[in-house]
Amino acid sequence: MDLMNILFIAPFLDMADAPVFLAEVVISGVLTGVMYSLVALGFVLIFKASGVFNFAQGAMVLFAALTLVGLMERGVPVWLALIGTAAVMVALAFVIERVMLRPLINQEGIILFMATIGLDFLLQGVGQIAWGSNVKVLNVGIPNKSFEVGGILLNEFDLFAALIAAVLVGVLAVFFQKTAIGRALRAVADDHQAALAVGIPLTTIWVIVWSVAGIVALVAGIMWGAKSGVQFSLSLIALKSLPVLILGGFTSIPGAIIGGLIIGVGEKIAEIYWGPAFGGAIEGWFAYMLALVFLLFRPQGLFGERIIERV
């Protein structure tokens, strides 16, 4: 009876007792969720357009952030460093296409996945050799003041991150759904052979999509780097975006966003209200449990393409 109370009654009573505090928890969850979404977005882009599950997305986030900080430490102005880093990410896309994807054309998805694991190690290593492995502070001049609205404490930085994510998602959604290149990307994801037959050059498409994923990684790297410093653990946030992908569906851009929000809010609420019942620190594994439940009942995620099999 006591256990029932702790799990199913007390947490809700706590929430009702302090609504302002609950709102703060939810908002902080939403903003963390936005950050997860930014990383998940990079995964979705590459998966949508080439059917490759890019294990190295986290490493790309780290690599982009390291490059940006590295350039800035050497006295390059912020705007130039941003352009420079973006150029490096595009160059990286060219190299990945030429060295990794092209020789593996027409191979199974699992083989490409293995290749991206290799890429993950490579990027982490090269990034740290080139720019050093100590924790760096990234300051690109995003305002970081707190203010109060109706008794709820908000942070300018978090709002800024949410705004950036919203803009990015809007642009990408239009790009995928409305433009000829977006259509070509979807075509390549659907059927390589048919795409070739209608004259879509696979290699160009891959460069484009890896470049876009690289830029998204840069944005995620800036946000996470500015929030918690640029360090090796940045590449581990990629792991947190796995449950986001499972929730949202691997092929859905809106799914990546909503999945991120659910995970962000869910883990914050779980930590605060249910944490004590489990001895705390459930923020670390709550997302994975949620993903597991989804895999059991809705394996394609909330917005993934329905699996239709004709027999």
Partner: peptide, 18 residues
């Protein structure tokens, strides 16, 4: 070899890619 997830219209539009 059609793009199964895409609409009839989008499939035919890809034909104009070149």
């Amino acid at each position: 070899a059609l793009f199964k997830g895409m609409s009839t219209l989008d499939n035919i539009m890809t034909g104009r890619n070149t």
